[in-house]
């Protein structure tokens, strides 16, 4: 899936994460993670981000994660929202995101 334009989802409140996503046409994935729990959960965050991108078939994007201690499902939800906004489509409810 191709991103049409930059998009943001989430906030910088505690327990939330702000995802900023930019088209990165033909340049692959560029994921940058800032997190207050990076030492313990940096790898887990990266894995979730990659998983959601793959579920949407997004192969070219630059993703900036600014994490304030969000649980995994919050990161998932914010990633999904940012991608949906970036591709200007509703979430695929029938496929439940897959």
């Amino acid at each position: 899936m191709q991103l049409k334009h930059p998009a943001v989802a989430g906030t910088l409140e505690s327990s939330d994460v702000q995802v900023t996503i930019h088209p990165n046409n033909g340049m692959g994935l560029d994921i940058r993670i800032e997190s207050i729990v990076k030492a313990q959960f940096g790898d887990a965050i990266l894995e979730t981000v990659r998983e959601v991108l793959a579920a949407f078939g997004v192969t070219d994007a630059s993703v900036q994660i600014n994490d304030k201690g969000a649980l995994d499902w919050v990161i998932r939800a914010r990633m999904q929202a940012a991608i949906c906004r970036g591709v200007e489509r509703s979430f695929d409810w029938e496929g439940e995101g897959v």
């Binding site: 649980l71 499902w73 919050v74 939800a77 914010r78 929202a81 979430f91």
Partner: peptide, 15 residues
Amino acid sequence: KDAARLIVYNALRHQ
């Protein structure tokens, strides 16, 4: 509204 739907959906599916 779009983001809130995803938050609530994921909250209930995962936790």
